[in-house]
Design a protein around this nucleic acid. Structure first.
Lengths: 145, 145
DNA sequence: GATTGACTTGAAAATGATTTTCATTTATAA
DNA sequence: TTATAAATGAAAATCATTTTCAAGTCAATC
């Protein structure tokens, strides 16, 4: 019988272990950081933040860990204007991102109403729409003030 | 008195000249290609396609020309999954992109109904939404068959 | 608790896209 | 036709990401 994980970090580590990965120090540090971050982080940012308390970390390990976490659907890539990527804890189900342009805070929202727009567009263009990519930008409640 | 441009290529070249740029051979070739392309092209693609008839072209010139065209709002960056960019003739006003996953054909559509979704999301999250980024993927009429 | 072997790691080098530098070429105004 | 400032192409520099490989570490087994 499986007891529920104490918190999200434990849950991620359980998932990783269940998938055959070893729970190493670098992995644990990176997971802790990503679970706790309210905004998407880039590889270099993760590298710098983890090295504050774990100076031996290599940048390559950051990339390799992000690859694992993305493969398990635990983190999601967030596209940047400049082509680089940042990484954010993923959400369950199909949700979209709302990103604060001031502090970077990322919030998921449902956005079901997109189906109407998609139907309209199919009629208008003759395309068969199979997938979509939506991201909203603005000010989070804290930054509005 | 200004006569209307004969075609889109002339229009782009007029805009470039009016902005103080010189109308060089490399520039003309790249503009002709982008005006005629139904799908977004990457720098290397442009480089290869133009060199078929203008072998002296340098890749650097492609990047510099794209920069000018983007600054004038004549082309638009299209983000790729891998972080690279492609470039597509821009549209007038605020429209979104619909891209064929098979042949790459890009079509613009209005998508005004997004305002409802944005209002909902603002109420739901407390954010002030200022901007958005929407792209649809699917099969174009020709590729559906 | 010690041992073993495979998975992970970190450093350095490789890669690929993009940018910068600079001497040469070229468009355009005089 | 000439002068000159802008644009070009080649090579080198930069930056993000990936690959290579020897050394280190986790976790199963003794």
């Amino acid at each position: 019988m499986n007891l529920p994980p104490l918190n999200l970090t434990e849950e991620w580590l359980d998932r990783l272990q269940a998938s055959g990965y070893r729970l190493t120090q670098p992995l644990r540090r990176i997971v802790e950081l990503l679970v706790a971050s309210p905004r998407a982080l880039g590889p270099i940012e993760i590298y710098d933040l983890v090295r504050v308390h774990y100076p031996n970390l290599g940048l390559v390990t950051v990339y390799r860990t992000l690859e694992k976490l993305e493969a398990l659907g635990l983190v999601q890539r967030v596209h940047q204007e400049d082509g680089c990527h940042r990484y954010l804890r993923a959400t369950q189900g199909h949700q979209h991102l709302l990103i604060c342009t001031r502090c970077g805070r990322a919030t998921y929202f449902a956005g079901d109403d997109l189906s109407r727009l998609i139907r309209h567009t199919e009629e208008e263009t003759g395309y068969l729409v199979q997938d979509h990519w939506l991201q909203l930008y603005g000010l989070c409640p804290a930054c509005r003030q």
